[in-house]
Write a protein that binds this DNA or RNA. Structure first.
Lengths: 193, 193, 193, 193
DNA sequence: GATGAATGAGATTTCATTCAT
DNA sequence: AATGAATGAAATCTCATTCAT
């Protein structure tokens, strides 16, 4: 029985849970493994988290908060809409890359009732943010008039696809630069450049 | 005991499995339920499929073949690169929409070892197909010169995102037209139109 | 894997459950022990009963039905109210004696929500039956006028006490004859006999 | 950390234990809850009571002592046997009513090995007391000659039934007056009154 | 071919008790 | 005296798979 502070242990469990959920998905991951990985007894985990679900949710909330903070910081520095869009895409991809584990477990386990609402709201916010940036671009005359909500959904889905690629096949991943270029300029050649 | 041909029974199992896996995911779905849904005994399922994994893989292969056929048919009719890209995107989205169930289970359960290699190869092929279309467009002078492989990956990831949106939050879905428009023309305003 | 008919196995489980619940009470009794006693695997028990609670409830319903049948049979033969009361008491005590196990588990585990309503209704019926018999006796002039419902409750509680005595201390048990005598005649000496 | 005298703390634990055991039964009640309710740490409970069982036993002993005191006080005032019997019954029922909690947990949890012997002896004493009162009544000519031990057991079982009714279904409870009336006079009409 | 009862391993969760602080 | 984190055993329940019929 190795005595640690509650908070310290809790963090160790979260680290272990992140790793385990990521590696095997929610359903497959088991508490025994998480406990083992955290260097604690199985019962010990339940001292800090009511159950498997709560443990999972804690992780979810964690990465959402982190991504939120990162995005806000990134956008603070960009004045131009095109630059802002680029910033948003780059930050998102960067985040996914740096938090491979957290994300790994988010691409799956989709239709948990306890999970959905939280995530849906979070994602809705992010789409709204993109749409706002596009609207600003249109207003400024930089972007061509278009359905900003629709465009926002598409951009959002590119990034969502990136997450899945992270999990399924890394050779499907793309660079932020390439993405920004396509999103801003499209495939079709411009008459005069 | 309803006498059926082996093939007939097998199909019924597949239908039941599709429904069950889709509704609950691989881990949660159980063989007893699939058997029940198929109107067959538990043991009966094992006469037609070695185990749960094989049953799952069979479903996977099925939808890949179907999507392959659909794509080939769609591209046969389009002569222009831009039209071909549009066709690819539209067909893909159409397929996902019509095969909600099959897809539902593909968005999750990603990193099963038994599952990955098969899917990875399939997806690689599809990316190559898009890249070829882009290359043709560049050669024809319709598309501006760019890294076709990168662009292909991005387009592929948009569609991949669509699949996840299907499962997570339907309000994140976009239309084929909007997607084609953004992919071809980008956000930025063109000088002369 | 010893194949038996489902019904046969179910009965064996019920026998085992009766013994186990009786010996240790609902909370203390465990499914492993019941399975062991029934000569079946733990999982096997769940093939026949959804869960511990359902298994318990089945037992409850069983003894209530049995006691109901016994009581009806006994009362059919008695024409006089005094004789009917005697019959009711005797049958009840006889039943408890012969079904020591079933009863054992009924004295305890009282405030299960799933348990209470069923039993409460059953017991209410039995009290009503006694009250009816007393009313008949009063109407016939054999019994002195009194609050029949109250008397019925008291008689019912004597029998209920018998059940507890069965479980707690057998030396507190009494004979049907003694009980009938006290209930009919009371303690106080009669002036003229 | 609230400094209290050992005795004070012990009392607080007993109060908490009474509440918790009563509310959930022995098996379901857990030490953490008891500690919480007592405003003490889990480990703290173990400084005052060797284990769960000892804590439970202490409570048992407590209510037995209390009931003993009450009974002695009640009987001190009654000179007539009939009055004494009435007093015994009334006091017992009164006690059960006022100590609902204690009783609640006694009605359940019957055959704990650690519990039985203590309770059995206590109950034996009480039956003997009733038998003595009846013998006095017979000797005095107030009561008709009968098997006093048997009658005592029956009266004792009525009261025991009352306890169970308290726990199972309150509509089965009876009044001390009705009980005394039935016990003294029985159901059968007296020729001359 | 087909059945479905049975298995057995493993999942989540609970909790009395201990012990380093 | 007191704390409360940790343990470890055991409980309920699930399920892919097997196999006697």
């Amino acid at each position: 029985m190795n005595k640690r502070s509650a908070e310290e242990t809790k963090q160790q469990i979260l680290v272990a849970a992140r790793k385990t959920f990521a590696g095997q998905g929610y359903a497959q991951a088991n508490m025994r493994r998480i406990a083992l990985e955290a260097g604690i007894s199985v019962g010990g985990v339940y001292l800090h988290f009511k159950n498997k679900e709560e443990l999972y949710q804690t992780l979810q909330r964690e990465w959402m908060d982190q991504l939120n903070r990162n995005t806000i910081n990134a956008l603070r520095d960009s004045s131009e809409p095109a630059e802002a869009i680029a910033s948003f895409i780059t930050t998102s991809i960067e985040f996914v890359r740096c938090n491979r584990e957290m994300i790994n477990l988010t691409g799956r386990e989709t239709n948990f009732s306890f999970n959905s609402e939280l995530k849906r709201g979070f994602f809705r916010e992010r789409r709204r943010l993109i749409a706002d940036l596009i609207d600003q671009g249109i207003a400024a005359g930089t972007f061509r008039p278009c359905d900003s909500a629709e465009a926002a959904r598409i951009i959002f889905n590119i990034l969502r696809g990136f997450v899945l690629s992270m999990v399924i096949d890394e050779d499907a991943l793309f660079s932020p630069e390439g993405c920004v270029d396509l999103v801003l300029n499209g495939l079709v050649r411009r008459e005069k450049q």
